[in-house]
């Protein structure tokens, strides 16, 4: 087990390096720092002096890979690649365009993101599974049919509409909760209620339908027939046998997104004004702050790789038949 884990972790390192190189190529080779400076300073009437000032200010004035003029080890370290890309591996992301330390921002913003993402994940999973099980229980009846129709209709609506409609109805028309904002502690509850509910509703359609197919696949298997032949009630078959076995693919599928919960949701957070990582990213994209976007790409990939690792582990824990090779 430990050897297997070690091998998986070792395999993750080249992937992270690949991501790092790719983002580096995207941000510095396709467009040179000069282009970036010109874009930030406005396209017209930019003096070369202003460009080099901007580059010096943001630390983009070093050569890309190799600085022949620097002494000794600085030939490698005094380059954009080392200072901007390689140092991400030690969680040094530098500063954003407004001069704040990115890693510090990320640490403080992860909390609000999790305050939304974790309830959405857990309650959403429970709601979807309940809905799916109900449809499976009433399978091949009109209830099941209309349940599936409802799912397809729900998943055909853009997530943006759920948010806009929710904000309009619940917050603006009925004044039940504030439209947007965030606060820590118990007081924050009224702020996160609406985004959580809206996100869960937006996810029901796709989720419940997906779980329904998983349960239906499970229900066609031999052990279910055996359970029925023993004279177990349909309810008991469903909850004792089908649910437990169906949970294996559902949970292992959910594990991969667990670490990504830290990243928050771009759209939800920006609509509801939650100071999480999602709105941080979206603000960075809109103000074209490349340093933040680069940092978020790196963190996102690292979290995804951790998710893959957790999936592998959870497979072996949930299903002993899966062998570690």
């Amino acid at each position: 087990m430990i050897a297997y884990l070690l091998r998986r972790i070792l395999y993750a390192i080249p992937i992270l390096i690949g991501v790092n190189l790719l983002t580096f190529a995207l941000f510095f080779v396709v467009n040179t720092p000069d282009d970036m400076a010109r874009m930030h300073l406005g396209m017209k009437r930019v003096t070369p002096q202003a460009i080099s000032n901007w580059k010096a200010e943001h630390g983009y004035d070093a050569p890309l890979f190799y600085d022949a003029s620097a002494p000794g080890i600085n030939k490698i370290t005094h380059t954009i690649f080392f200072e901007k890309s390689a140092r991400m591996f030690v969680l040094d992301f530098g500063t954003s365009d407004d001069g704040r330390d990115i890693w510090h921002e990320i640490k403080t913003r992860a909390g609000p993101s999790l305050a939304i993402a974790v309830p959405v994940f857990i309650i959403g999973l429970l709601v979807n599974i309940t809905f799916a099980l109900l449809m499976v229980f009433f399978r091949a009846t009109y209830l099941d049919f209309w349940g599936v129709v409802l799912c397809v209709v729900l998943m055909s609506i853009s997530g943006l509409f759920y948010i806009i409609a929710g904000q309009y109805l619940i917050a603006k028309l009925w004044h039940l909760v504030p439209i947007s904002g965030f606060n820590g502690g118990i007081d924050g509850l009224r702020f996160i209620l609406l985004p959580v509910v809206v996100s869960i509703v937006a996810g029901i359609g796709g989720g419940a339908r997906w779980y329904r197919t998983i349960f239906l696949e499970e229900i066609g298997k031999d052990y279910v027939r055996t359970a029925r032949a023993k004279g177990l009630s349909e309810w008991r078959v469903l909850f004792r046998h089908v649910l437990q076995n169906g949970m294996i693919p559902i949970l292992t599928g959910a594990v991969v997104v667990l670490p990504l919960l830290f990243m928050g949701s771009l759209i939800t957070e920006s609509f509801f004004g939650i100071p999480g990582l999602g709105s941080y990213t979206i603000d960075a994209i809109q103000s074209q702050d490349f340093a933040i976007v680069r940092a978020m790409v790196f963190i996102g990939s690292a979290l995804y790789i951790i998710g893959l690792l957790l999936t592998d582990i959870s497979y072996t824990l949930a299903d002993p038949r899966v062998r570690l090779q």
Binding site: I15, G18, V19, L22, T23, L26, F27, V30, N31, D35, M36, M39, L260, M263, L266, T281, I285, Q288, F290, V293, R294, M296, V297, G300, S301, Y304, I305, L308
Partner: peptide, 20 residues
Amino acid sequence: TLNSIPGVLLIAASVLIMQV
């Protein structure tokens, strides 16, 4: 590697680059 970069971020990064 490509899959591990969150989709929206990769798209955002590329589109920003293209805007430039």
